[in-house]
Amino acid sequence: MQYVKHGKICADEWLHVGNEGDLPGQGNLIVPLARWAAVRDELLARKNPLGIKLASSEAPERIREDLGRFDLVALEFPVFRDGRAYSHARLLREQYGFKGELRAAGNVLYDQFSFMHRCGFDAYEVQKDSDAQRFAKALSEFTVRYQPDPDGSPSIMELRLQPYRNVKTVGARP
């Protein structure tokens, strides 16, 4: 497995822990939602940055109140066909204003990178090495897109408007 952040393969400084067993004394931990619920105070007492992992069936609504306590949210794709986390990512970024690392975990494959990126993910646990190496290519397959992206890159509709209106974004109503 390779870890890709902001488009580059790098060393993963985070450690996943499960629902059982002792918490390691050191290190940046990513804990499942149930663990967070169970040992919340113990986790908050630690000095290290804290991450949380949500299964695709766990709505981000459930951590909304606590979002400020996490430096990282990992969203799980149990199989690539399960697309719930795309919506969850957009909620976290666009409605809840989460600014930390948003990590795609699980069945993360080459042909999903661009969709994930466009929904606000910025880090990926990539199963196949060859996929990770071609990460940049995945994001460059398209130079144009029909939908507005959360990162603010203009949609085709906005590009078309530029000659009409001397503005980059058309978000606000006239």
């Binding site: 690539f80 795309y86 919506s87 957009r90 398209f142 939908q147």
Partner: peptide, 13 residues
């Protein structure tokens, strides 16, 4: 146009 390769809705139920 909007639905073409929609980033959020390409893996619906």
């Amino acid at each position: 146009q909007w639905s073409s390769l929609h980033p959020e809705f390409s893996f619906l139920p």
